[in-house]
Nucleic acid binder design. Structure first.
Lengths: 220, 220
DNA sequence: CTTTGTTTCAAACAATCGTTTGAATCGCTT
DNA sequence: AAGCGATTCAAACGATTGTTTGAAACAAAG
């Protein structure tokens, strides 16, 4: 894949394909997305996928890596990682960041959606393992650090994982259950202000839980 | 659809198709599931789908309703709805019930998985609207009642929705991010005991949050 | 047994899809 | 201008899919 990685900056066709594919894969998922639709969106011939990427699957793997890199540029975790800030503030940044990835309906928001899709229903491309190892685990470690500071010692590793998942699960809800929210209570994410309110709600809920659990004797 | 509903008890082929389809749709999703695979599993001819159900889409709609009815039989919300129990206990039952639907790997656990799939990525069959209106909203009302008792008055309707979503999101996480959990921390749901521990953790986290928020001045 | 309606079946159909193919075009170097 | 490699293209290919079709088999009633 290194040969490919050296090329993209100077290859307009390849770049157009990547961006179109990101859109279509995020919207439709791997299976439903067709090479013809991607190529139509990129305004290139269908054979270009095979020429530039060898196959639909290889394109997908490339898009997944590309998506994650771009999401990190748009929604960096720098504030969530800044140890000079209090853990509550870091957690609020982490949550706001993750939620924004789920709810950004502009072009760049497709990254979070694509990732959420892949996690929920991994494609046979094997791309998920690589993305988890190289990029998602470091983000989980940021969250683990914040949670550990807030609850203090005394929790098993398994319970630490569960606490982290409880926080992330609240944010991912807004992607995975978007169809439900749009039908039942669309107003809660209707404007940037409401999205910020939602992030606040998740942060307060989670911080309240962690602090309350910290004041108990440790094990829940 | 009423004509169909009167038939199923006495039609073995139809029933076999429904059950096979539930399995395959839950595992593969609507698009990836093929009529041939479903019919092979049910040991019937492929044309039977069109004869008994008119189309793949109609079969899916029927399976979705069937799935929800069966999940309610297996995992009833009676304890969560029992107003004589304290709200904390009711919430623990609600969470345990919802989590079990997500994590039951036996045949009957397919229901929750199918529903989670449909919500995350609605099929063009239009079946989701019906399921939401007739069956899922009553369950949301159960949860809303519990949350209202725990946090007390002073919260806007939007924030009540967000609180409910925070609780449900933690449980759905175990379905949507199963691939991630299986790679990073599979032990947390490896045995029935661990699943119960996970439900406890979610319940404690949520109850802690709600109680802490209740002792504040109301609005988060 | 005949008639009628129901159910099942194998084959066929039309559409879609990712991929391959070989020619044409393009771009660069000498 | 010629040569070479890179890129694009339209057509074709083989596989897959949901659906249709008409015949065969089955079941029930008279």
């Amino acid at each position: 894949m290194n040969a490919f990685n050296d090329t993209p900056c100077h290859d307009p066709t390849r770049k157009r394909l990547l961006q179109a594919a990101l859109d279509v894969f995020a919207d439709k998922g791997f299976r439903d997305a067709t090479v013809r639709e991607i190529c139509a969106k990129a305004e290139v011939n269908a054979a270009s996928v095979n020429y530039h990427f060898r196959s639909k699957e290889a394109l997908y793997s490339e898009v997944l890596s590309f998506a994650y890199r771009e999401a990190n540029e748009r929604y960096p975790y720098t504030l969530a990682s800044d140890a000079s800030l209090p853990p509550e503030v870091r957690l609020r940044h982490f949550i706001g960041n993750l939620l924004a990835r789920m709810l950004d309906d502009t072009y760049l928001g497709r990254h979070g959606k694509l990732l959420a899709r892949e996690i929920a229903d991994p494609t046979p491309t094997g791309a998920l393992d690589q993305v988890i190892e190289t990029t998602m685990k470091p983000h989980c470690e940021v969250l683990d650090g914040i949670v550990a500071e807030l609850v203090g010692p005394g929790y098993s590793e398994a319970d630490m994982h569960r606490l982290g998942l409880s926080i992330v699960g609240q944010c991912l809800m807004y992607h995975h259950s978007r169809s439900l929210i749009d039908r039942v209570c669309p107003e809660i994410i209707a404007t940037p202000e409401e999205i910020a309110n939602t992030a606040d709600c998740i942060a307060h809920f989670s911080i309240a839980a962690l602090k309350h659990l910290a004041t108990k004797d440790g094990r829940a």
